[in-house]
């Protein structure tokens, strides 16, 4: 079986101009001028067509949701009004740039699997190229300066997403989150805990280098995956009927339902996938990575953009739940419960 420790890893890097005040207090014309400078530098520092730039206001709620669901836009930026905010997409989505959000610049990149150090390396070089055209706010003591002083330092946030439903069922995530917190790390439910998906991230970036940040996140996430494996074994050994009942119900709903909400779909996919890993369900294609791709594909913004040809009823369109149920029925049609 394919070994996949992390479903997805991502990075965010925050930078500010050294003179223009931060977006929440700066005059709009200063921010506008800064935005033009940034865009000019992006064009100078890259091959033609590598960066596509959009004014934030030109992106519809569905498009913003889609980008946020792909990890290319932060939820706060997606919600922002921002007449002076712009969004840049690098090489069709390898990375992205938020201009004039909470800070002047936030570079983002996400990729399925365990790729933290490559993602940092890519964003690091984009950062170098941006720096050719501007002077970043930096202080030898505080590091890169940010609107929220607790985020100053490297400006780097590293994230790894793990699937740990057994730890959640066993009531272990709270204790683990508190332990990680004392080491400067956060363990946050990814989609309000749906499917037992959790995000490990560093809390601050001061007094620690980028290398140590990414290593600490990877190490903590690996440790969670190990614990998850052993708790799954214990659960199956101690509660075989309950575990089978849970997986069986999940598969039954996934194969038969006609209306499925987003959080429910994530839980169903996660349960069936864990059932496959435990040898209780026969659905050979359902690797952890494919299961995660499926979870992303049935997010509201993805369904609206990819399955329903755009925006018509917006994200509230009730047909989204019907399309989601149809996709689950199709995917799980030949899955079988082992007897």
């Amino acid at each position: 079986m394919e070994r996949c420790d992390f479903l997805v890893t991502s990075v965010g890097v925050t930078r500010n101009d050294s003179v223009v005040p931060f977006p929440h207090v700066a005059e709009p014309d200063l921010l506008d001028e800064l935005r033009e400078r940034v865009i000019a530098q992006l064009r100078r520092g890259s091959a033609p067509g590598e960066w596509e730039i959009f004014p934030l206001e030109s992106l519809s709620p569905v498009q913003r949701a889609y980008l946020a669901e792909r990890g290319l836009m932060t939820p706060a930026f997606a919600r922002a009004r921002g007449e002076v905010a712009s969004f840049g997409l690098y090489k069709g989505g390898l990375a992205s740039l938020e201009i004039n959000g909470q800070d002047h610049l936030r570079l983002l990149a996400a990729r399925e699997g365990d790729h933290l150090s490559e993602l940092w390396a890519m964003v690091d070089s984009i950062d170098d190229s941006l720096e050719q055209g501007m002077t970043f706010a930096f202080d030898e003591r505080w590091g890169y300066l940010t609107a929220r002083p607790d985020e100053a330092g490297t400006g780097l946030k590293a994230y790894a997403v793990v699937q740990t439903p057994a730890l959640m069922v066993a009531g272990r995530v709270g204790v683990l989150a508190l332990q990680l917190m004392t080491r400067g790390l956060l363990l946050t439910p990814l989609w309000d805990g749906a499917g037992g998906l959790f995000q490990v991230s560093n809390r601050g970036g001061r007094g620690i280098s980028e290398l140590f940040i990414t290593e600490a996140v990877v190490e903590a996430a690996r440790d969670l995956v190990e614990k998850e494996r052993s708790v799954r074994k214990i659960l199956l050994r101690d509660n075989p009927v309950r575990v089978r009942d849970h997986m069986g119900r999940a598969l039954g709903v996934a194969q038969r339902a006609w209306v499925v909400g987003w959080a429910e779909a994530v839980s169903l996919i996660s349960s069936v996938q864990v059932g496959v890993e435990m040898g209780l369900i026969d659905a050979p294609d359902l690797t952890p990575r494919y299961a995660f791709e499926l979870m992303r594909r049935v997010q509201p913004g993805h369904l609206a953009v990819e399955e329903m040809g755009g925006v018509h009823g917006g994200l509230e369109d009730p047909r989204i739940d019907e399309v989601r149920a149809r996709i689950l029925r199709d995917v799980f049609v030949s899955a079988r419960f082992e007897r």
């Binding site: 930096f138 590091g143 490297t154 001061r206 620690i208 280098s209 140590f212």
Partner: peptide, 22 residues
């Protein structure tokens, strides 16, 4: 800031990347 962050988080000075200009 020093008082607040000293109590709440890391009070060490910056490690990590430095802008090329600096």
């Amino acid at each position: 800031l020093e008082r607040g962050l000293g109590a709440g988080g890391s009070s060490h000075s910056h490690l990590g990347k430095i802008p090329g200009r600096v």
